[in-house]
Simulated assay, not measured.
Amino acid sequence: MAASKRLTFTVNITRRPKNAHKDSPQKPEPYVGSPELKKAVNLAIYLRRPLLLEGDAGCGKTRLASAVAYELGLPLYRWDVRSTTKAEDGLYEYDAILRLHDVHTQKVAPEPTVAHGQAEPEDLDQEYLDQEDSEPVNRNPANAKHYRQFGALGKAFRLKDCPAVVLIDEIDKADLDFPNDLLTVLDEPWEFKIKETGETITATHKPIVIITSNKEKGNLPAPFLRRCLYHYLDFPNDPKQLQEIVDKHYQVCEEAPPPADLVDTAIARFLAVWNEGGLFKTPGTSEFLDWLKALHTFESKPYNPKQLEKNKLLPYPELLFKLQQDWKKYAKAS
C-alpha cells in the first residue's frame, strides 16, 4: 500500500484499507480510546515524533500499537526491551560466528569486513535474494550482507511503499543510556550505518513509533523526553468505559456476549475492588475480560448475577489476584 495521503487514527476498525501490508496485524484490536488519546496518536503521526505512553498496568499501552497498525493497514514491528537490550539490537544483528562457521564448512575464503563507509560489492548478491523476514537460503561467507538480520526499527527503515508502526515496549527496562542512544536514529537524517557491510540505511518513510514505559527505573532522560510526545493512560475505572470495552471486545471476537445483568454486576464488583485501593497488583482490562468470560461460559450455566452481587468472595479469583498479599485479602475467607 502506498502512503499517499495523510494518515489519521480514529479507533474505527472498519476503516482498514483492503490493500493492507502483509505485516499488518491480521486480527482487529478491540480498542477503546479517548478523544485525547486519538489526538496524541495523530499528532505523533503528523510530526513523526515518538509517542511515549505511561499509565497503570493493563490500561492498553501495548495494545495501542496493534490498533493503530490494524486500522491503517500498516506493518507492525514489535521490539520487546530487556535489561540487556542495546539500541543497536533494534536496528540489526550481525552473526560473525555463523559466517566463520560457513567459511569452514564451505571452504570459502571470506573477503574481509569492509571499511566503515565502504559498501559491499554488488556482484556478490547475484545468487542471493535479499529477504527482510527470513534467513538467506544460499549464504555466501564472502558477502557480509548474508549475515546481518534487521530488527524492528531496521525493518521499518527499509520499507519503500509505506511507513511502519514500531512498538518499543517497556523502554524503562533497559540501561539508562538506552533512550538517549535511540535519539541518533529517531531524528534527522533518520538513518543508521551497518559497520560490517558499510551500508547506510536511510528511512524512505519515517516510522510511527509508540513507546511504553512503566517507570521501573524512574524518569527517562530529559533529552529523550524533549523529543517525544507524551500521554498518560488512565485505567478505565468508570462503568461506562468498561461497558464500552466489553461491547467492542465481543463485537470484534464475534462471540455471544454475557447477559446484560451479569455484565453490570461483574463491572460493579470488579470496580469496587479496583477502586478500594488495597491491591498490590491491580488487574487490567484483559484480566477483567477473562474473568467475565469465565463467569459467562466456564460452567454449564452463566454465573447468577444475584449470587455474584451477594457473595463476599469473588468467584474465579485466579484470574484477578496474582500476588500472595492480594490473594490472602480478597480470595480467602478471613
Rank of each mutant, 00 (worst) to 15 (best):
S4M: 11
L7W: 05
L7V: 11
L7A: 10
T8G: 06
V11M: 14
R15V: 09
N19R: 13
A20T: 07
K22F: 06
S24G: 11
P28V: 09
P35L: 12
A44E: 11
A44I: 09
R49Y: 10
P50R: 08
G60N: 01
L64C: 07
S66F: 03
V68N: 03
A69R: 06
Y70I: 13
G73H: 04
L74R: 10
Y77E: 00
V81D: 02
R82P: 00
A96C: 08
R99C: 05
T105V: 14
T113G: 04
A119F: 05
A119L: 15
E120M: 12
P136F: 07
P141R: 05
A142W: 02
R148W: 10
F150I: 14
L153N: 05
G154D: 09
K155N: 13
F157T: 07
R158D: 02
L159G: 07
K160H: 12
D161I: 13
D161V: 13
A164W: 00
D169V: 00
I171Q: 00
D172K: 03
L182I: 02
L183V: 06
W190N: 11
W190I: 11
F192E: 02
I194L: 05
K195E: 08
E199P: 10
T202F: 05
A203T: 10
T212C: 01
T212G: 03
P221R: 13
P223M: 08
F235K: 07
N237K: 08
P239K: 10
Q241L: 14
H249S: 13
E254Y: 04
A256G: 04
P259D: 14
A260K: 15
L262R: 04
A266T: 06
W274M: 06
G277T: 08
L279I: 06
P283Y: 09
L308Q: 04
K310A: 15
K312Q: 07
P315A: 01
L320G: 02
L323T: 14
Q324H: 06
A331S: 08
A331Q: 05
